[in-house]
Simulated scan of single mutants.
Amino acid sequence: MAPTLLLAALLAAPATPATPLIPNSPVGSDSVTVSVAVPPVLGLAKSARRPPIGYRPRHLLLQTGGGVGMVSVGGGLSFARRRLDLDALLGYVPARHAGTTLTIASAKVKYAPWQLPLGGSGLALTPLAVGVYGSYTFGLRNTGEEGQYPDDYYWWSRTIRVGPVLGSSLSYALPDASSGRARRLTAYYELATNDLYGLSYFLNRRALSLSDIATLALGLKLEI
């Protein structure tokens, strides 16, 4: 009689299909199957989730000059079999060289159509790389004395510069990363100018030469 009453009570209870059920093993010929609701284990769902995929630099940069800081550090990404680089740098100029301390944030895009291996030495030459850059300067240049310049004296932006980049580089193959990705250490130089220098040259070609408006950058790029 007891098994019959227990079966009736179970049939009358509401079902909970959303909760996993684990059947108990039957005991004896008069036993009935009893389903026990098991709550989900805390933290199991979170541990099963894949961590978010973030973007990290493929190479690190150390540079001096180039109109974006006496010393600049940054990183970037490479695409199209290392032919296209997208870089971001943060540069610093001490006050003794600019009248006030400057911090310069810059971004640069370069494309190198040719990469020439130099025998079996692990060296590779990139004879030409062309691109553009833009920079933003935190801090004032040529502040002068109060009232020295009228409000509209600087008709150009003192903080934003854009211009072309032309350069070359020499790379050396390093041992592969733990992920199997090939790595290289690259030494490069860049010649650049900017919009303000270019306009000054156009308006004063008799007084200025191309070397007067060019900037030189020397740097290292380490693939990680």
Rank of each mutant, 00 (worst) to 15 (best):
R81F: 07
P20K: 12
D85P: 01
R184P: 00
L170I: 05
G144P: 01
E146L: 09
V38D: 08
N142Q: 11
K46Y: 09
L86A: 00
I22F: 14
G198D: 10
T103C: 03
E146Y: 06
L166H: 05
A48D: 15
T137R: 02
R206N: 14
G219F: 00
L7G: 02
V109W: 00
T215D: 08
T101A: 06
P14D: 10
R81A: 03
P164S: 04
I53L: 15
S135W: 01
H59V: 04
A12Q: 14
A45T: 04
W114T: 08
F202H: 14
S31N: 11
Y172F: 07
W156A: 15
L11M: 13
L116R: 10
L10F: 10
A2D: 13
P17M: 05
P17T: 06
A105I: 10
L208E: 08
P26F: 08
E145S: 12
S179P: 03
V109Y: 00
H59T: 02
T143C: 13
D212Y: 10
S25N: 12
S211G: 15
K46A: 15
R141I: 12
K46F: 08
L128Q: 06
R50Y: 06
A98G: 07
D85M: 03
G198K: 12
G66K: 00
V162C: 10
G66H: 04
L203W: 12
R158Y: 12
Q115R: 08
L90E: 03
L166T: 00
M70T: 09
L84T: 05
D30M: 04
P20R: 10
L6Q: 07
L116Y: 05
R83N: 09
A124H: 11
S211A: 09
A98W: 04
Y201H: 14
A182D: 03
I22E: 08
P17G: 03
A217L: 08
A9L: 07
W114V: 10
G99T: 08
T33K: 11
G167P: 03
T100C: 03
W156R: 15
L21I: 02
P51E: 06
A187F: 06
L84K: 01
P20E: 11
G43W: 00
P3I: 15
F138V: 08
L125K: 07
R96F: 12
S171I: 03
L203C: 10
M1K: 14
V27A: 11
A177M: 04
V71H: 02
G66N: 01
S169P: 01
V38E: 10
G28Y: 00
Y133C: 08
L125D: 12
Y201N: 06
L21P: 00
L218A: 11
V73R: 07
S211F: 07
E223P: 03
S106A: 09
K108E: 10
R205N: 14
L77S: 07
L203I: 13
A48S: 15
S211I: 09
L123H: 15
G219L: 04
W114K: 06
A107L: 06
L125N: 08
G74P: 00
R181W: 01
G120A: 14
L42D: 13
P127V: 13
T101L: 04
L191N: 01
L102K: 03
G180F: 05
D176E: 13
A187P: 02
N24T: 12
A8K: 15
Q115W: 04
P26C: 05
V71S: 03
A98K: 00
F79T: 01
